[in-house]
Simulated scan of single mutants.
Amino acid sequence: MTSRTTDWWHTLAVSAAPADAPAAFCADLGADSLLAAYRSGLFPMPAADEYGRWMNEALYEDRVATGAIAVPGGDGELPYQVAWWSPDPRPVLIPGQARLGRRLARRLRNRLDWSTSVDRDFGRVVSQCAAGREPRWLTEELRRSLLALHERGWAHSVEVWQGPELVGGAFGVRAGPVLSLDSMFHRRPDASRVAVADLATRFGAVGGRLLDVQWDSPHIRSLGARPVPRQDYLDLLRSGPPVGPPATDLLPAARLA
């Protein structure tokens, strides 16, 4: 059954949301709500604990009161548990423009024991992305909904293997012609860079237009990402037919070099 929140995401004026604050607060992290939010240009940042909820309220209650930050249906108890973001500008990575760098490309050509796959171990990739991270935004509830979306074919992981060992990976949610990249991890130097480059290559091969990398940072820029105006991102997200899932084959990582 579709929730009231799922319908509400489609009516939210994301393009008018604050550039540097949440677009909305809503505690509904169900799989249907989550997918509808991604398709509307939003991604969730759940509070890890009561202190996180209190900080959300302390920082943003004035903007909620003025209506600058939306709350679905004007719920009486403001659900500061989950903030939904759509930053402006939005950092994106165009398939085919992911950068490994010369040093890593040279190493990959000599690492014949490294390979990559997609959707071979989604649950473990998400768990590894959550391990030891602060703040702990990958809550159990969010992980359950991401797993449900994976089972429906909307959430995808990329795995980087050294022989039989999982040494890196990334995961995200597919929405229209965009794949929103939620998190990455590495257990060997540069394995997360290989994961992002591999996912960009595979997603581009099926017609994907962008990887949305959500938060800007020097590391993301070093991978080839660049900021674009939020409205440009939203226009592309809503344009054209959705693309299919990336290929899942186990392939040599050296092909990316």
Rank of each mutant, 00 (worst) to 15 (best):
A155E: 02
I69L: 09
L211V: 05
G73C: 07
L147Y: 04
T2V: 15
S86G: 03
G168W: 00
H186R: 15
D7Q: 14
P177H: 12
E151L: 14
H219N: 07
Y51D: 15
A155D: 03
W8S: 03
P18Y: 03
D216A: 15
D49V: 02
L147W: 09
R221C: 01
D88K: 11
A197E: 00
R202A: 13
D190I: 00
R202D: 04
L142E: 00
S183F: 13
V126I: 15
R102M: 05
L78C: 14
G244D: 04
V64F: 13
E140Y: 01
V173K: 10
R193T: 00
I220Q: 12
T248E: 10
L251H: 04
P95I: 03
W161V: 04
S33W: 08
G176Q: 06
A257Q: 06
P246S: 11
L250S: 02
Y60Q: 09
R193I: 00
P87T: 07
G169Q: 08
L211C: 05
L112M: 10
S3R: 11
F203T: 01
P246D: 07
C26Y: 02
S115R: 12
M45P: 00
L146Q: 09
S239F: 03
A70G: 06
A130R: 15
P252Y: 04
G67V: 09
G207W: 12
L42V: 09
E134F: 09
G41Y: 05
A257G: 14
D7I: 06
V160Y: 02
G244P: 01
R124Y: 01
T66C: 08
M1A: 15
L179N: 04
G240C: 04
F122M: 00
D62Q: 15
S117C: 11
L179Q: 06
V167C: 01
G52I: 12
C26P: 08
N110H: 15
Y60M: 05
A31V: 07
S40E: 08
A195E: 04
P252M: 09
T116G: 06
Q128L: 15
G67T: 11
R106H: 14
L181A: 13
D216L: 11
W84A: 13
T2N: 11
L146D: 03
P44C: 05
R99P: 01
W54K: 14
V64H: 13
D28M: 09
P44H: 12
H156K: 06
A205R: 14
R120Q: 15
